[in-house]
Amino acid sequence: MNIFRLAGDMTHLASVLVLLLKIHTIKSCAGISLKTQELYALVFATRYLDLFTDYISLYNTLMKLIFLVSSFSIVWYIRHHKIVRRSYDKDQDTFRHYFLVLPCFLLALVINEKFTVKEIMWTFSLYLEAVAILPQLVLLQRTRNIDNLTGQYVFLLGAYRSLYILNWIYRYFTEPHYVHWITWISGLVQTLLYADFFYYYFQSWKNNVKLELPA
């Protein structure tokens, strides 16, 4: 475990906590894409199948459980909570899941490191995570006006991805046989998707004005 990896995991954790906190305290999920949250729940459910087969460390197991429980709780809140679900803007959040899920699954069947169920699910989760933020970014573009917590949520997710890239560079130079093209390319694609959002986030931060995306 290196410092970039730990910092990456912590910003990832913070992003989830910010979102849960927003939903739990304000009792609102305005500006949050349910589609993205459902895709993340699917990402974790398919990636962490190794919870049943491999033990890596207590840290690893705990973090996996936290991400699984939190992602499914967020989906539950938006879909079923008596008050929260009323703030969900269904008409704006129109991205279709299968546009992302299907190509990712087919790609995982073709491009993977090993043709086994566990490995294909793991690869699928990497591809899906790379694009799972798209419904959220589309929703942000549509509503344009973003509250602070939603902005911070997306910012923290982007920070997590950037730190993971530094982690890979560090591991490449310090660990033998650490070459993982599938992980790197899907991770890079994922990080690049945030580039546009980051640009406007920093602009608004620098000028000390509320974050607003151009139409």
Binding site: R5, D50, I56, M63, F67, H177, Y178, T183
Partner: peptide, 10 residues
């Protein structure tokens, strides 16, 4: 998961 594998990542 042996050293050098990215499967220990979250």
């Amino acid at each position: 998961t042996q050293k050098g594998s990215s499967h220990d990542e979250l």
